[in-house]
Design a protein around this nucleic acid. Structure first.
Lengths: 211, 211
DNA sequence: TGCGTTTTAGTATGATCGTTCTAGAATGAC
DNA sequence: GTCATTCTAGAACGATCATACTAAAACGCA
């Protein structure tokens, strides 16, 4: 009974993601969005609300389309392969991107940081998901003997998260394969169980007073 | 032969650092700076040039006052203590800061990233200095047996740099002692020489085909 | 075909941005 | 004390910002 929408919401949101991802929230103007999405300011406001709402939708779309699938892709992998796969994936995409946009969530985290109550939960929650993924990998790896038990699983997971964020930062200013791979390679070597840990899983476990 | 300046340039620059550090470049307005520095827009422009020039001066002051002294403080320490000291210092200051401003250089790196030709060299150069510090620690540590030789010194240094940046990002959104210390603790444990590496430095070196 | 609705397109609005201009006040050199 | 110079104060400028408004055009359904 009314005129149907002429544009594809998903395509518009993708364009919004591209704008916000590249330039951030503040540096992206409504005019930029109008230009990139191809529709008018009135349509944007009518369909998505104000700029903050559109940013939230774009960020959620980025997370749902970028981070979610990546987590799913490696959650069933062998523990060390899961960590390696996730990080290699990030490195590969970082090097593939000529604009060096990094991670939109990390960028948003630093742009809004602690001061913005609306976006904080989404940002923190996303990082918590990634940390939980790493923690799961580490725990499984410590269980099957592929990841060192010399450090607490929680600390190792945080360590992975820190390296991931460091890679995201480095990728924006020094997007060189040697740099990103070097940081990741050292992390993976640090995670791997020491040779003496791998000789006998059961002996090792009892030796450390577990079970 | 003319009226002397009534304000202290260093104090004004400190106020500018505080503004830019907390809010970044874009989100800091000249009016903010006028309010925080106490002098007028005309005086600001007369003394420091435009907003970009003032930001550059503020960033250089931040680096000279924050990062430079920290590097100097630990460059003569035993290798592992140098890395630990630097990172513990960063963690302590991050937890001390109620505004969770993180590192002004990291913030600037993500705000300007690759697109800004003027600030890139300063940012990249600063990170290079920190990386060189880590590399020096690692090389010395590998030499005296305190740091593992299981990984290339360059990769270990990049690893340290990535963790440092990760801590800077984490500190802005989750400034909790357990989080930051956990990430750092795992890094230090990863850097430390394995027990079997420490039994005999000379034997270890020949065993790996060095010298 | 024509009505009701919702889309478009483009302009208007008030706020704020970085920057500059116009004064006048204050200083050092003579 | 006077002059040249440089400071301060604050208004003013044009540009751009996010957003709202005014019409006209386009559709689904009767």
């Amino acid at each position: 009974m009314a005129r149907p929408r002429e544009f594809d919401e998903d395509a518009v949101l993708d364009a919004a993601v591209a704008c916000f991802w590249r330039h951030g929230f503040d540096a992206t103007s409504i005019r930029d969005l109008v230009g990139q999405t191809g529709l008018t300011a009135a349509s944007l406001y009518n369909a998505f609300g104000d700029k903050r709402s559109l940013f939230r939708l774009a960020l959620e779309r980025y997370i749902a389309g970028g981070i979610g699938p990546r987590l799913a892709r490696y959650e069933a992998a062998p523990p060390l392969d899961g960590v390696r796969g996730y990080l290699d994936d990030v490195v590969a995409r970082s090097l593939d991107d000529p604009a060096s946009k990094g991670c939109m969530v990390v960028n948003a985290a630093l742009e809004f940081a602690a001061q913005d109550a609306e976006f904080r939960p989404l940002i923190i929650g996303t990082f918590a998901r990634i940390e939980a993924f790493f923690l799961d990998c580490v725990r499984r790896g410590q269980g099957d003997g592929s990841i060192t038990r010399a450090m607490a699983a929680e600390d190792l997971a945080l360590h992975c998260l820190a390296v991931l964020m460091g890679v995201r930062v480095l990728a924006r200013i020094r997007p060189e394969r040697a740099v990103l791979n070097g940081a990741v390679a050292a992390l993976l070597a640090a995670l791997a169980a020491r040779p003496e840990e791998r000789l006998d899983g059961a002996a090792d476990r009892s030796e450390r007073g577990m079970t």
